[in-house]
Simulated assay, not measured.
Amino acid sequence: MGLSLLLPLLLLLATLQAGNSERCDPKMDYRMDQPEHLSAPKGGTIHINFTFYYCGALAKDPRVNIALRRTHFHGQFIYNSSRHFVHEDYKDRIVLNLPEGQKSGFLQILNLREEDENTYFCRVQLKTQRFGWQLWQSILGTKLTVYLAPKTTTKGPTSTVTTTTGLSVLEGNRTSVSLPLSVGAVVKVALAIAVLKTAILGLTLYLRWKTSKDPPKLDPKQDEAQDNGGILYASLTLSSSSSPAAHPTLPKKSPQEETLYSILKA
């Protein structure tokens, strides 16, 4: 009784599996999904994520190969993992990340350029047990937009940095920091210093010349004293006895004057 019931069940299961295998249509049950649109700044990095689906089981050695086209569905190949091919425009800038045995991964484009803005289509090729080699690709692809990164201004909690030509001012802490001046500014400062030094030197030379041209007038006696080392000398002139000027004639005194002179002398 048990065997009579078990045999029909086994036949039903085999029939269902056969029907499922026959309904596995490679043209309908294979699919590659990837985002419709991505954007990244110039010089940045983009990840084109993909997930593929297949019908039936993979072969023991499926030899999964991922490729990437650009511009349109039948566009130029820029990457092929099995052939180790990378287009010259993307040399050393495309990296594939697909763990073994997984159905999801991503293609990474490094150091983006403006000319990288395009539409990219991921394609997968692998070997199945029943249908052999199968190959399919995304229909819509991923539209990549590359934009210029905006300039960023760093603001602190209590200060704001404002950058000008040749000078950086830090507001908030009331501190100004002078950056190196330009070549033109350095030349102007050097010329100003040279002109100032020349003016000072010319004024000094003029004052010295003026002083040497008009020396202060001194008294003749002071000049003589200076010439003799600051000592005044008296000169005596001796006359001979025969000279009439040596003994001048004195007026004769009266008798009263002689008496008075004698008394005072005593």
Rank of each mutant, 00 (worst) to 15 (best):
K60N: 08
S81G: 07
H84E: 10
D61G: 06
Y30E: 07
D61R: 06
F73R: 15
D25Q: 09
G56L: 03
H87V: 09
D29P: 02
K27P: 00
Y30P: 01
Q34E: 07
R123C: 05
V124M: 01
D25E: 06
F77D: 10
M28R: 10
E88W: 08
G132D: 05
D29C: 14
I66M: 10
Q129L: 14
H72P: 00
L135Y: 11
R123Y: 04
Q134R: 15
K91T: 11
A40N: 06
S81E: 11
A57K: 10
V86P: 02
F50G: 02
D116G: 02
A57T: 14
I94D: 03
A59Q: 03
Y79A: 04
N65H: 09
F85L: 15
F131L: 05
K127N: 11
K27V: 05
P62D: 00
C55A: 08
N97K: 11
A57C: 07
L110W: 09
G132I: 06
P26R: 05
D25P: 00
Y120P: 01
I78P: 00
A67N: 04
P26Q: 12
R23P: 01
T71S: 15
K27G: 11
Q76A: 14
Y54Q: 01
Q134H: 10
H84C: 08
K91D: 13
I78L: 06
R63K: 14
N97L: 08
I46M: 10
F73W: 12
S39D: 02
P35F: 07
H72N: 06
N20H: 13
S104D: 07
Q102I: 04
N111L: 14
P99C: 05
Y79L: 04
L68P: 02
H87Y: 09
Y54G: 00
Y79R: 04
Y30T: 14
F50K: 01
P35W: 10
D29L: 13
V64M: 04
Q129W: 12
G101S: 00
D29H: 15
D92R: 15
I48H: 02
G43M: 08
R31M: 10
W133Y: 14
R123N: 05
C24K: 11
I109E: 02
S81Q: 13
S82Y: 11
F77I: 12
H84R: 15
N49Y: 09
L98C: 05
G56S: 05
G75W: 03
V124A: 02
G75N: 07
G43K: 08
V95N: 09
G75V: 02
L135S: 14
H72Y: 07
S104N: 08
V64G: 01
P26W: 11
K91C: 12
R123W: 03
Y90A: 12
I94V: 14
G132M: 04
V124G: 02
F106Y: 15
Q129T: 12
E114Y: 06
F121G: 01
T45F: 11
F106T: 14
